[in-house]
Design a binder for these strands. Structure first.
Length: 234
DNA sequence: ACCCAGGTGGCCC
DNA sequence: GGGCCACATGGG
């Protein structure tokens, strides 16, 4: 794409960011006290309402099971009891425990040390863990490790498609698009992703509530797509 | 009684 | 590369 076109796309992505920020305010994500809590939340969150993840985290804390050594040493039936509320209870406890064991082996459970490598190396290491796909890996990198990667989730895909920014759900394609057109800034990446989630929960639902949409800019762009002017950026 | 939730891994072609 | 499926609880 020509530099001028990249510039226009960049301006539009930043304009939408400003609109979202005006509409919903700073989200201050990720909602966690420590990097480790980000990791636990990311592993339990998959395909589950956040409310239930919070309950599971509270339960684990109350049981004294909230650091890598404790979880790595816990028996699966015990872990299962505490995370059951987060669903998928046959896989999540096993993956959580295995991940903590890996953290211990890799860096003695020291997360600062774990993340202190080139992004690509940490990302590959995360993706090699059972139950860690691209979104979970990038959530951990961005919100726990402070690495500048843009997180793509189902909400990002839904909103982006409706706006007409892309016509695909290919994770890497969409991630590259955001990272290409935004400044490489951890703060912006964190806030943008959180704002997209806020927007999806508020009005950009499976059945959109466009009449109540406080971010008219998005609707304007959406109308362009409705007239067949959408373009997928390669 | 549905549908949905901040996915992932295992299939298949 | 893409499409479909099971996984499991809890809330609307």
């Amino acid at each position: 794409m020509a530099p001028a076109a990249i510039g226009r796309r960049m301006n539009r992505m930043r304009a939408v960011y400003e609109r979202l920020l005006d509409a919903y305010g700073p989200q201050g994500w990720w909602p966690a006290d420590t990097p480790f809590e980000v990791i636990v939340g990311a592993l339990l969150m998959q395909q589950t309402a956040w409310r239930n993840v919070e309950a599971a985290i509270r339960d684990l804390k109350a049981a004294g099971l909230f650091d890598p050594p404790a979880i790595a040493a816990a028996r699966i039936p015990i872990l299962r009891r505490h995370v059951r509320v987060a669903g998928l209870f046959r896989t999540k406890p096993v993956r959580l425990k295995a991940f903590c064991r890996h953290l211990l082996e890799r860096s003695g459970g020291d997360l600062a040390r774990y993340f202190d490598r080139p992004i690509d190396e940490v990302r590959a290491d995360l993706l090699a863990q059972e139950g860690v796909g691209p979104e979970t890996a990038d959530s951990i990198l961005l919100y726990a490790g402070g690495h500048p990667v843009f997180v793509v989730d189902a909400y990002t895909v839904r909103i982006g498609r409706r706006i007409g920014w892309f016509d695909t759900d290919a994770y890497e394609t969409i991630r590259r698009q955001f990272e290409t057109h935004l400044p490489r800034d951890v703060g912006v990446y964190r806030e943008y992703h959180a704002l997209l989630v806020a927007h999806a929960k508020a009005v950009c639902r499976p059945k959109p509530r466009c009449a109540e949409c406080p971010v008219q800019t998005l609707c304007d762009v959406g109308r362009r797509r409705a007239r067949g002017r959408a373009r997928t950026i390669k």
